[in-house]
Amino acid sequence: MSQTAASLRHKIASAGDLEAVVRTMKAMAASSIGQYENAVQSLDEYYRTVQLGLAVCLRASGPLLGTPAAQGRKDAAIGAVVFGSDQGLVGQFNEDLLEFVVDHLGRLPGQKVVLAVGERIQARLAEAGLPAGKAFALPSAIGAITPLVGHILIELEARHEKGEIGDVYLFHNSPKAGSLYDQVAQHLLPLDEAWRVELAREPWTTINLPEALNGIPQTLPAFLREFLFVSLFRGCAQSLASENASRLAAMQRAEKNIAETMETLNRDFHRLRQSSIDEELFDVVAGFEALSGTHGNSGV
């Protein structure tokens, strides 16, 4: 079906409106990436402080029995916290993470309970047959990450105390140099034995050795909760940075496609206008020639 000038004008205008939307979303994604990356970087110093506190407690303590890091019941399910996305336009962000989670959990024995953060990853996990625990909405701003992490920690602690879950794993996408993101799995509970021993042996930064206030039994669980908080907060921020990086790449591809489409539409529009002008000129010339011939015949 041939296109008219009016239809082409409408398509060009629609493409221009879509280009403006894409440009806005692109700017928002680029801005969000910086905010979440800065949030992750700001946690590094605090994470180091938590590590030093853990080192002091672990150096003076024995096995972590009676703490959240202790081994749960042998028949308890494996808990998994998975950060995905709530919104679309992120390419294969959720699909890549789902494949990684299914493969990783599939190699672990026992039952699994998944705490999914993000509506789209929740749906994909359900389709993959992974038992869903409590679902959480993904935060839309940095300030909303802290309450979310608090709710996740409460849920994990409650399930751990009831013996419903033992080991706890964290899954999310993380920004990677040279590519948009990569999948990350972290074993949160119980603490990795090799890492715990290495941390306990780490020398103190000064000659004045610290002491744990109120005793190890009260201080160690507090540092463990802070360790979990920082790990979950950083995982969420890295996931959001990766999501926005993926959305930025998608918007860049869309912007390129729209530009190519507009170029084609403009070329078709100018060709159609030129064709219409040519036809009008031919009609004028033909009419002039016809009138000239008529007048010439009248004078004979």
Results as ranks from 00 to 15, higher is better:
45 E>T: 11
213 L>N: 07
12 I>V: 14
145 I>T: 08
146 T>D: 15
269 F>S: 04
62 G>V: 02
86 D>L: 00
298 S>M: 14
193 E>Q: 14
246 S>Q: 12
89 L>M: 10
29 A>L: 04
224 L>W: 04
13 A>R: 14
8 L>C: 06
3 Q>W: 09
235 G>C: 07
119 E>R: 15
86 D>K: 01
263 E>S: 13
232 L>R: 00
82 V>C: 07
171 F>T: 03
241 A>E: 04
157 E>S: 14
181 Y>H: 09
212 A>D: 07
40 V>N: 04
26 K>Y: 02
118 G>K: 07
71 Q>I: 09
244 N>T: 04
75 D>Y: 09
76 A>R: 08
103 D>M: 05
299 G>C: 10
264 T>M: 09
52 L>P: 01
296 G>I: 00
109 P>R: 11
258 I>C: 03
70 A>S: 13
65 L>F: 09
40 V>S: 12
7 S>A: 14
260 E>W: 02
282 F>D: 11
165 I>C: 02
59 R>H: 13
154 I>W: 02
163 G>R: 06
141 A>V: 03
95 E>W: 08
226 E>H: 09
116 A>R: 04
275 S>G: 15
130 L>F: 15
108 L>T: 10
263 E>P: 04
195 W>Y: 12
6 A>H: 10
42 S>K: 10
241 A>K: 13
25 M>W: 03
26 K>T: 01
179 S>I: 04
4 T>L: 03
56 V>F: 06
290 A>Q: 15
